[in-house]
Computed example of a mutant assay.
Amino acid sequence: MKLLLTGTAGFIGFHLAKRLLERGDEVIGLDCINDYYDINLKYSRLEITGIDRSKIEYGKFVQSTKYPNYRFIQLKLEDREAILNLFAQEKFDKVCNLAAQAGVRYSLQNPFTYIDSNINGFLNILEGCRYNGVKHLAYASSSSVYGLNETMPFSVHHNVDHPISLYAASKKSNELMAHTYSYLYGIPTTGLRFFTVYGPWGRPDMALFLFTKAILEDKPIDVYNNGNMQRDFTYIDDIVEGIVRVIDNPPRGNPEWTGANPDPGTSIAPYRVYNIGNSSPVRLMDFIEAIEEALGQKAIKNFLPLQAGDVPATWADVSDLEKDLGYKPNTDIRFGVKRFVEWYLTFMY
């Protein structure tokens, strides 16, 4: 198939691009390469897939030197004319939108960035799909949409109307926007609620990267909520496997759905939402211990209160993913952390 994959200079997009390319799909990769974090890491990911940094120019295609079925283009999602022209020219079979302004804490200081990219940009993706016969749109949502919900594990059939960060609100908005386009125009859409993704080539603003760097430099690590946090850490390979299965299986409408008792996770329209998580919450202190074990070095811990926008715990109910697509992530945290540390010591240290 011919697929538009946005966010290919990013952590998940980079790994997914490699997987799709290696199985023979034709991929157009897109990324704005913003400076939310070190752009050199983004360029390094692109170079792994054969995209020469020196040839990247805004709005121009770069042919991969490694994969004949891969072209990359630097574009902003909010660049409406360029995005709609790209759809009209390339006529994609499917789209996977992973590009977004990420980060819960960053949204507290830079709210307008989230509206530009995650709302206006996503609308451009939807409009591109609407007018160009796209057969399936899969897109990144986030576990952060669960917000103040305390019912564990988090289920896609739970109400998620109480986000506690603008980032989370933008992701919930994406799900609402996608449903509208699925209902009005029959576009199959699937939202992917990722749970704390980690692994090699990960984002430097995430805890694993920050903790590893600080421990190696004998600097203290900030441990929020005094360590009383749990996260459903999900290894990157498991995330990619889940996305590929979703892309290959466009949703159909749920014939049992009713407006008298509406199910938030499905619809009469061709719309679905899935959690992709390890379904095994890890205590933050156990996570830190796994990093210490992999590094052979103890952390200096700076205990702090819960930060604004953070939730104390996440836990994914993946029963729908398992039932519909026959898949359940299962990578052990110690294995995943060890793989990350091996990569970090090779490429970053």
Rank of each mutant, 00 (worst) to 15 (best):
C32I: 11
N254H: 06
E217W: 01
L184P: 00
Y327F: 15
T266K: 03
F122L: 07
G24T: 02
P111L: 05
P264H: 04
Y224E: 10
L304H: 09
D324S: 08
V341E: 11
P262R: 04
R283S: 07
I236R: 13
L4M: 00
K18Q: 15
P188S: 08
S44T: 11
H162W: 06
T212N: 03
G227S: 02
V337H: 04
F154D: 12
Y106A: 14
Y43C: 08
N110T: 05
P312T: 14
V197S: 15
F209R: 02
G128W: 04
F347T: 10
A100P: 01
S267G: 01
L41G: 13
I73G: 09
N228Q: 15
I247L: 15
I247E: 10
G24H: 04
Y43H: 09
Y146K: 04
Y67M: 08
T49A: 12
S319N: 09
T49N: 14
V62F: 09
K94G: 01
F287K: 07
L3N: 08
F122Q: 05
Y349E: 14
N261A: 14
P111C: 05
P111Y: 08
L84P: 07
I119N: 10
N110F: 14
S117R: 05
A269P: 02
D79A: 12
E293I: 04
V282H: 02
G147N: 07
D238R: 11
S182N: 10
H162Y: 11
G59C: 02
